[in-house]
Simulated assay, not measured.
Amino acid sequence: MLASFFIFMTSCQSAQELKSEQYFVEGYQLYTTHCSNCHQADGKGMSNLYPPINGSAALADKAFLACIIQNGMTDKIKVGGRDFNRPMPPNKKLTDIEIAEIVSFVTMKWKKDSTFTDIETVQAALKNCKVY
């Protein structure tokens, strides 16, 4: 009975909705592994050491997010009126799809974006990254 219900529910979703859910779940797992130690599970950062993602204006710029996830950041950043200047290490081992999934998770979770960030968007962003 439960399997029939699951099949019925997933058959009612569009391919876009299914992909959004997939990216969200995968992104959550990757965020937990690679990001939450500093930015915390709730995205609120760690005191004055690490900036919050939840509520950050950076959520509006998916290209910026992709770049700092891959390349890290050494510049000072202001979030919520507070300055943060601890360097963020690069994540060079993450693949483009993994970065797309993390960007999807954080923007869907804390910006309330309803769609995933596709790999093409991330690949284009990574080709044009500035050093931060």
Score class of each variant (00 low, 15 high):
residue 7 I to M: 08
residue 7 I to N: 09
residue 7 I to W: 11
residue 7 I to R: 14
residue 8 F to W: 02
residue 9 M to F: 01
residue 9 M to N: 04
residue 9 M to V: 01
residue 9 M to E: 01
residue 10 T to F: 03
residue 11 S to D: 01
residue 12 C to M: 15
residue 13 Q to V: 03
residue 13 Q to M: 13
residue 13 Q to D: 08
residue 14 S to A: 06
residue 14 S to P: 01
residue 14 S to T: 07
residue 15 A to N: 07
residue 15 A to D: 00
residue 15 A to M: 08
residue 15 A to R: 04
residue 15 A to F: 04
residue 16 Q to T: 09
residue 16 Q to K: 11
residue 16 Q to A: 08
residue 17 E to R: 00
residue 17 E to A: 09
residue 19 K to D: 04
residue 19 K to Y: 12
residue 19 K to V: 13
residue 20 S to G: 05
residue 20 S to N: 01
residue 21 E to V: 15
residue 21 E to P: 15
residue 21 E to C: 02
residue 22 Q to N: 13
residue 22 Q to P: 08
residue 22 Q to S: 07
residue 22 Q to H: 06
residue 23 Y to S: 09
residue 23 Y to D: 01
residue 24 F to D: 10
residue 24 F to I: 09
residue 25 V to H: 14
residue 25 V to P: 13
residue 25 V to R: 10
residue 27 G to H: 03
residue 28 Y to G: 13
residue 29 Q to A: 12
residue 29 Q to D: 07
residue 29 Q to E: 14
residue 30 L to K: 10
residue 30 L to H: 05
residue 30 L to D: 02
residue 31 Y to I: 09
residue 31 Y to S: 12
residue 31 Y to D: 09
residue 31 Y to W: 12
residue 32 T to R: 13
residue 32 T to W: 14
residue 32 T to K: 14
residue 33 T to L: 04
residue 33 T to C: 13
residue 33 T to W: 06
residue 33 T to P: 14
residue 34 H to C: 07
residue 34 H to T: 14
residue 34 H to Y: 14
residue 35 C to I: 02
residue 36 S to D: 02
residue 36 S to R: 06
residue 36 S to G: 10
residue 37 N to H: 13
residue 38 C to Y: 10
residue 38 C to K: 08
residue 38 C to P: 15
residue 38 C to I: 00
residue 38 C to G: 02
residue 38 C to W: 08
residue 38 C to R: 06
residue 38 C to T: 04
residue 38 C to E: 02
residue 39 H to R: 08
residue 39 H to L: 05
residue 39 H to C: 10
residue 40 Q to T: 06
residue 40 Q to S: 06
residue 41 A to M: 15
residue 41 A to G: 15
residue 41 A to N: 14
residue 42 D to N: 08
residue 43 G to D: 05
residue 44 K to A: 11
residue 44 K to G: 10
residue 44 K to I: 02
residue 45 G to I: 09
residue 46 M to A: 00
residue 46 M to L: 13
residue 46 M to N: 01
residue 47 S to N: 10
residue 47 S to W: 04
residue 48 N to P: 15
residue 48 N to F: 11
residue 49 L to T: 04
residue 51 P to M: 14
residue 51 P to N: 15
residue 52 P to G: 06
residue 52 P to Q: 05
residue 53 I to W: 09
residue 53 I to G: 15
residue 55 G to A: 10
residue 55 G to V: 05
residue 55 G to I: 01
residue 55 G to D: 00
residue 55 G to T: 03
residue 55 G to Y: 07
residue 56 S to R: 08
residue 56 S to F: 03
residue 56 S to P: 01
residue 56 S to G: 02
residue 56 S to D: 05
residue 57 A to I: 08
residue 57 A to Q: 09
residue 57 A to W: 14
residue 57 A to N: 06
residue 58 A to E: 02
residue 58 A to H: 12
residue 58 A to V: 03
residue 58 A to Q: 02
residue 59 L to K: 03
residue 59 L to P: 13
residue 60 A to C: 03
residue 60 A to N: 07
residue 61 D to V: 11
residue 62 K to L: 04
residue 62 K to A: 07
residue 62 K to G: 01
residue 63 A to S: 00
residue 63 A to I: 00
residue 63 A to D: 09
residue 65 L to C: 12
residue 65 L to R: 09
residue 65 L to W: 09
residue 66 A to F: 06
residue 66 A to M: 03
residue 66 A to R: 02
residue 66 A to K: 03
residue 67 C to A: 00
residue 67 C to V: 13
residue 67 C to T: 07
residue 67 C to W: 12
